[in-house]
Structures are given as structure tokens and as C-alpha cells.
Design a protein around this nucleic acid. Sequence first.
RNA 1: GGAGCUGUGGUGUAGUCAGGUCUAACAUGUCUGCCUGUCACGCAGAAGAUCGAGGGUUCGAAUCCCUUCAGCUCCGCCA
Length: 607
Amino acid sequence: MRGGINRLSYAAELANDLRRTHMCGVLTEADVGREVVLMGWVQKRRDHGGLIFVDLRDRWGLVQVVFNPDYSEEALKKAERIRSEYVIAVVGRVEKRPEGTDNPNLPTGAIEVHVAEARILNAAKTPPFYIEDEVEVDENIRLRYRYLDLRRPEMQRALQLRHRAAKATRDFLDGRGFIEVETPMLTKSTPEGARDYLVPSRVNPGSFYALPQSPQLFKQILMVSGIDRYFQIVRCFRDEDLRADRQPEFTQIDMEMSFVTAEDVMEVTESMIAEICQQTTGLEVTVPFPRLTYQDALNRFGTDKPDLRFGLELVDVSDLAAGCGFKVFRSAVQAGGLVKGILATGCGGYSRKEIDELTQYALTYKAKGLAYFIVTEEGLKAPITKFFTKEELATIQTRFGARPGDLILFVADQPSVVYAALGALRKMLGERLGLTDNADYRFSWVVDFPLLEFDADEGRYVAVHHMFTSPRTDDLPLLAEEPGRVRAQAYDLVLNGVELGGGSIRIHRRDLQEQVFTAIGMSADEALEKFGFLLEAFDYGTPPHGGIAFGFDRLVMLLAGRQSIREVMAFPKTQNAADLMTGAPDTVSRGQLRELHIGLDVKKEDK
RNA sequence: GGAGCUGUGGUGUAGUCAGGUCUAACAUGUCUGCCUGUCACGCAGAAGAUCGAGGGUUCGAAUCCCUUCAGCUCCGCCA
């Protein structure tokens, strides 16, 4: 019985004989005196009885339209029925606003449109939330009514920014001689990497396509084909758990070039990123981007995707810890681990509870605890100072450059745990201390990744990047004997703690590719079965080549200053990979399954 | 697979830790009436929630316990 529902019974009027002449948001004083036809949504109606103001909205903005019996009695009558989000058309004249009634908060605030004729093109129920920026609505509701959410100016700006980023990308790469080539969405499942989304083949019972995790193999094949410079703004699919910056389907800027070195790829990339920034937000980016090695990144920041907007670098005290009286430190080093710390500037006043919170946080990264010192005028204070000599305490304070009022936090463990825990702690402290300026964009390259790493669960080496990445030629002799020490010709582009993209020079020779397959424990038979076409292609004259791929959503997210890629995607999915608007994924009919020769093995809930 | 946070009229929140004074409060929105210069219009009035769902404890549950659902953040997973 809500009024909004009854309103819908009003017959909609047609606009067949009207042509929209202007957009709402673009009218200015230069248009004064002009007869216009506007169409849009009602943002707000202000009813003064004998006079009604309506803020009319379209993608370009708002303009005030005025219903006054002096202009049209009939239009005023109609305006009384108008409600928020009605779609209306108005015919009228642009006029300068009366003296003293300008609205400086509105780009169109100096003018208004005097309505001679109005039509209600469609009524609207009262929307479940306000169509305006900075609404704090439950994401459930935003996603269920995504079409309304997308009406908000903020979301419209995000989609426009995304469009401009895509256009800048295409324009730039076109100018550099790249051509966009589409690759299949229905392709072959490959081992390694993420879980595939599978699509059953009706005409090949029992067989499945996989949706691409990336067009990796196709773009390499295109190099074999002599395309030379390929790119694609392409959808990729990975069936893994979601995060703020991970969706099951996402978009990559995918590139590949022939006859290039890593330097060449990085140069093109830097120029492209600079161009995208310039064309979207006007941000001027300085190139080239600083580079750091994988090992440096870990040592200094505890992560291979460091946020370079602030310091708080990790400090190594393993040497000191090895001989100190604190058993936790000493035994960590003896077990082949590290003891590293971070200086939390100005956090010396943290309460026991706050330090406990930090400890809890470190625990989620598998740290066993968090040791700390509070820095005072009299030196370091903490329950654990008794395990250290005066000299040791003084050395620690000096090494951290700690001053009274600071807090020093330590993790002692295996290197991977120390890096993960302190890296996360550093990031959290950076945010908490207000060191992460959204308008500060610090790009960097991380290079010299290891080619392979040992996977304890699998009991074998696995590719860090992917198995088509070329080893550094100077490390080739190590491949057979010490695969863990081989460095890759790979590079990651990092921005403010987010991995934006990664790429590599690829293997282009069959013998080397087969060696790498061997190193990751893939049999010759399996290699032929899964990648025979690639190995065969390598036999037909394959140029040296390399490329890179970017998370387009992440790039746009950062340019838009948002915290989640959902905010820059028109129709994102929830953490359960569901689309709350359409209801996907959903069950299908028995008939569809039968046609695909699929039987289900799930317990059906009684409905 | 795991951890944490959130869920109260249409929307956003208060109330939950110390169960009864909550026959649930506030703001906004909605509806009705009045209003010719508002732009967060104003004024007067009205309607609207059994507190995500289910079960339990209790004389009594929004509040305590268990289960479950949904959203978010994170670990694992994933480049």
C-alpha cells in the first residue's frame, strides 16, 4: 500500500515528437534565452505550492527547472505529481536566475529553465536509497539494485574514468604499432596456476572448455605468427576466493612484443602508464620508475609489492639476536630464521591493549608473537629488556634510529613468516599513522624474481611467475642443479602496495622450455599432451619475445582513489562469487544437464 | 577450509557489554494538508520495524547461548 506503487499507475506519456536538444549538466549562462528540450531523472522536487522547483539530472549533471503558472498552468499541475527518480521531459527556455538566487554549489547554478511543457515519461517507485554520492548503504542493497547504484554521480564518474583509461590505452598502443587481437574465451584447461572455470561441451560429451585465466599461450603464438606487437583489453577468469582487489572475472591490459628485451617492455609500459594517468586524472608521472630487486623488496619492506609512499622499513637484528640472552630471538636465528623489527614512530604511548591488537594482527600471518620495546628518555623499556645487555639495547636503539616516544616491534621466525608479518604490520602502521596519501602515486618495478620456488605440499618446484618465463641467461647453468637459485627475466609493476601488473621475457626455444618443464616435475608426455602445440610452434621459427599484463580494474581503482575494484566495475560479484542482481550462479534444468551429459553429485536441500 | 566485523521501520544509526523502564528512540525518506524563489526549502500532521532466520535459556530476550544465512575485511588459495 505504499504510495510509490500507486503512483506507477499514472500513464506514461510519449516523447515521440520531442527531441532532446541539450544535456542538463552542460547548460551555462551562454545558453540564456535558448529554447531547450531536456530529458532526465528527477533528483529533487521542492514544492512551494504555487511554484515548484525540480532538479533534473542526467549523466552530465543537474539543472534547476522551474514550474510557474506564469509559464504554464498545465505544466505546474503535472509537476505536482512528479516524484524522485521520475523520468520527465521538459520544454522551456533557459533564463538567468533572479538576482540573489544563484546557487554557487551547482555548475549550472547561475541559470534555470522555465518550463512551458512537461511530460512524465515514466514514474518511479521510491528508490531504496538516495541517488547521491557518499551514501553509506549496505552493499547487499547496492548490488541488488545496481542499476540505481550506478545512477550515482560517483559511480558514473568511475565508469567514465574506466572508459577513458581504456581509450588512452588503445590510443597509446595503437600509436606504438600494437594491434588488438581477440583470443578465445572457450579454450583449454592448463595445469598450474589458478582453478579454471569450466564450460561443458555439448557436442563432445565429457569434454570441457576452460575460460582463460589469461591469454598467455595465445599471445605467444601470435608472436610466432609475426604479429610482433599485440595487445588486448581482455576479460580473464580465475576460480579462486575473492578479495577487495580480486574478482572471479576481471580485465587485463595484455601485451606482447617480439624482438625485445625486458628494458624495452618496461619502457613501453612506463610510457603507457604515464599516458593513461595523464589522460584520466591529469596526473603527471615521472619515468622511469624506480626499480628494486625482489630480495631488496623483501628485506626492506617484507613484501614483493611494497608501498613506497612511506618509510618504516624493516631493520635486521639477526646478528645481534643470535648471541643475545632472549631465547625466542636466539633460537629463531639458530633454526635458520631471522629477527627483524620495525620502528613505529610515535607509538610509544600505545596501551597494552593496542599492542595486543598489533600482536593479534601479526598472529594472523603465522607469527608466534610480537616482541616490543617502548623507547623512553631512559632507554628501551619492556618486559623483555631483562634478557638483553645494556650494550645490546643501545645498539638496537641506534640501529632503528629510535627516539623517545617510539615503539619498536619485532618478529622472530622463519624468513617467510617474518616478511609476511612485518610487511603487513608496516602497511597497517603506514595507514594508521596517516602516511598513505591517496593522491600520492609511487610506481616501482620489482625485478630479479626467482624463476622457481619449492612447494612443500607438492614436493616439487613450481613457477613463481609462470612456466613460460625465461630464466636469466647468466643463471642458466644453475637450472639443473640448483633450480631455486635461478632468477627470472620477470618484472612486476607495483603502485602503492598493489601489484598492478607483471610480465617477463618468455622462453622461445623448445629445448629450454622442455628443461623448465622438467625442472617443475612435468613429464615429457604431459608436456606434449598439454603444450604440444606450443612446443611444435617453437619449431617453426619463433622470435624472442616478452610482454606484460596489467590488472586494469586495479589501475582504475587506484586512479579513482577507491578501496575495492568493485567500485570501478559495473556489475561485480560478492565474496561468494554471486551476482545479487541477476541471481547468478543458479541451478539449471534437468534437460540442460542431460544435453550436456552432466550428472550432479550434490545433496539437494529440501525446499 | 579458517579468523574477525556487520545485520534494528524504505535508508542510515541509537539501544546489545550490566535481560524487564523497548507497547523499540533519532535522523532522513514516504504520505496528507498549507506555502510564489527554493536549492539539505519551510510549517503542521500521519503512517511505517516484533530487531537477518531458526532453536534454546528465562516468569520475561533486540539484548544471553547454540545453529544458520547474507555482506564486508583478512589468512590459506590466487599473480
